[in-house]
Design a protein around this nucleic acid. Structure first.
Lengths: 219, 219, 219, 219
DNA sequence: TATGAATGAGTATTCATTCAT
DNA sequence: AATGAATGAATACTCATTCAT
């Protein structure tokens, strides 16, 4: 690798050089890896992890099965990587979209909607739907840890809300599980392309959770 | 089976015949069938359907693998039977415990707690946790139908509550999914023997769902 | 198993009962297991362990590949079992044929011929020819231990001979390796059905080893 | 290759051109080829031919796997080349070190020690340890031919010794096999860095073979 | 000369299921 | 009612080898 000399960027517009720069290569690699991930994630959530054969994935990408092994070490690694994408996405949400100056309830509500929507997308679905026992014991810890991150985020927001009075006193842990369960369930019942958009569905569930079914929902 | 001819009832009191009556046999059969079911259900929810091998089930019962086939036609049939147990239990709830003279909200609350508790027990867990794609297409319909029964029950109760004013206006379908998701999730996080009893956990989740997280929970 | 009632021995001569006694079954099992072993051993030594596919073995026995797994857990287990047969055979030699009242040299000579001959037979060949790295690390120890048994036997006989003066002073360890190498090599060069019988070949090598190439061999 | 046009020799002394002359290139090539061979030989004898992956070889050389194909056409070719190195070495021994004016026994003894030592070195080990069935049928002949060269050399020396009376009458073929086996076995048991140097071990085995175990060894 | 990427061909192993007894 | 034995069908993964660059 270090033996390759830097190459001038190809002259754009004129003609595309058939030679790739190192950066392009790295890009290619990352792109392809992600493509595998995306294909796999979609299949995992529609067919289930076990029912998804590696050839299903390679067929969809029109590559050969062993090509997948160039990007991932095993089927399990793909699964874990899928959940990681979802987790990174959550991290990014908190870095870029969460506004800690708002009151807890407001912050919680926004995250809930965002999270609910993400539960209707492949990587998000992977995170909730894949069970621990789908993977070998060695990898189970990673899967569980991933889920825990979500619980913790929810718990912290609830606690923040309780602290600032925007959320009534309650067991934050039970609250987090309740929210995670209700929103995560979107991954099972929400149908893309149905009457209800993902945003609408997530918003409704969020509203019900926050306001309670017992009282008239305000919307 | 058809080879067995009717036999006179054994003389009771005198001595216990080592031969079994047909009734006893039928009883035995039903008992054993249930034993298989119970063993399977527990394994399915702890290890997952695919990871549970038929030998795991037979080992636990200290019988041989082919013996299972005397009671069930296939592994899938066992799974379906497990969910059916849960469904029958729900039916029984509505026959025996639901009180249609109460207001919707009250009825809903009671069912929710009952349902939440059942989500912490093997057969209930089976019902929620087993994914459609774990079974062959032919059997998927049954699994889905089972889940739908729950949704329908919840929807009807919500609608009853809306009708009698005890529950605020909301989309009953979304409400049902929200409740099912939140309570079903108990099957994932509730640990038997932990601080929180199944009843307490189910009650708390129910309270949160009905009163909303945004408002102080009354307890 | 214990549930089976004892069965009278089948009436011999009249007709062979189609039902097998428990003893017969156990026999069958052992027989079949040995048949697998024999087939495998022959293939291992002619084609090599890696080149021998499990289907080669099952084909030769006219059974299906998974049937092999009823008798053995893995290909490696078969290999190990082959070497064990050879080792047991050696043990039996020392129990039944070795005569400790003889002088060391005589005992050594007899064992050498016996061992040389066994090196021309499938199980014996397995023992010498299979290399440690053909099997997973976990099993290597067994293989190595097996070989060591042979070395030890040779060493003890040499030492006995040195002690009683029938063998000249020498490093017994080096002597054992020299003998094992020379006799083991029979497994490579001796051809069944050739001019030289296994016994003749083993005897000649033994004579050369004992008398030395430098001096006229007496035969 | 044919694309390269002849280049003027670089001006020496002034500065070292970064470009290589054709001769240098050829040298490089041969050097690298040998490096591959050496790495492979060591791995083959320690891990076995099949267990040694081409990446093991390339890793050790810190090159990439396909780079190996610049020097060899296939894995098997590498193996064959390894044995050839050993054979060439044997040829060289007979050209440079064997003294045909000596008596047979003396010549045999010297070669035996030399051969025994070479059995403790990578290429020598390759020659004896690699089994015919490790390679495809097409290549087996070469492997066998290689071994035969050794047998023939030994046979000729034995016959010479018998002819000049320095060695007792015996079957030269059996003798050759006996020697080859005993000395070849050094490749299995001799440990570099152990108490016994390769020379010492080879000498002892040689002495045992020539004098016989039955008689006191003179040392 | 060397590499990143891709592939073809191969194989041990697993397991639900069946069947003769 | 139960079992020992056997099977078919399936699948993840490996690796030597190739090829465009």
């Amino acid at each position: 690798m270090s033996k390759l000399r830097a190459r001038p960027a190809p002259v754009k517009g004129d003609f595309a050089s058939p030679f790739k720069t190192r950066a392009q290569r790295a890009n290619d690699h990352a792109d392809k890896r992600l493509a595998v991930l995306r294909a796999a994630a979609e299949l995992f959530v529609t067919q289930g992890f076990h029912s998804t054969k590696l050839t299903d994935v390679s067929d969809r990408l029109q590559i050969t099965k062993p090509a997948i092994y160039y990007y991932f070490e095993s089927k399990e690694e793909i699964l874990i990587a899928c959940t990681q994408v979802a987790l990174e996405s959550t991290d990014r949400y908190f870095k870029e979209q969460d506004d800690p100056t708002l009151r807890g309830r407001e912050r919680l509500e926004r995250f809930m909607v965002w999270f609910g929507v993400s539960m209707t997308e492949p990587f998000g679905k992977c995170l909730v739907r894949v069970a621990e026992h789908d993977v070998a014991e060695a990898t189970q810890a990673q899967l569980i840890a991933g889920k825990r991150v979500i619980y913790r985020r929810l718990r912290l927001l609830i606690e923040a809300g309780i602290a600032d009075g925007s959320i009534g006193k309650c067991d934050a842990t039970v609250g987090a599980f309740t929210i995670a369960g209700a929103l995560g369930w979107l991954s099972h019942w929400h149908r893309a392309g149905g009457k209800l958009s993902a945003e609408a569905a997530a918003s409704q569930v969020t509203a019900l959770l926050l306001n309670g079914l017992g009282a008239p929902t305000k919307r």
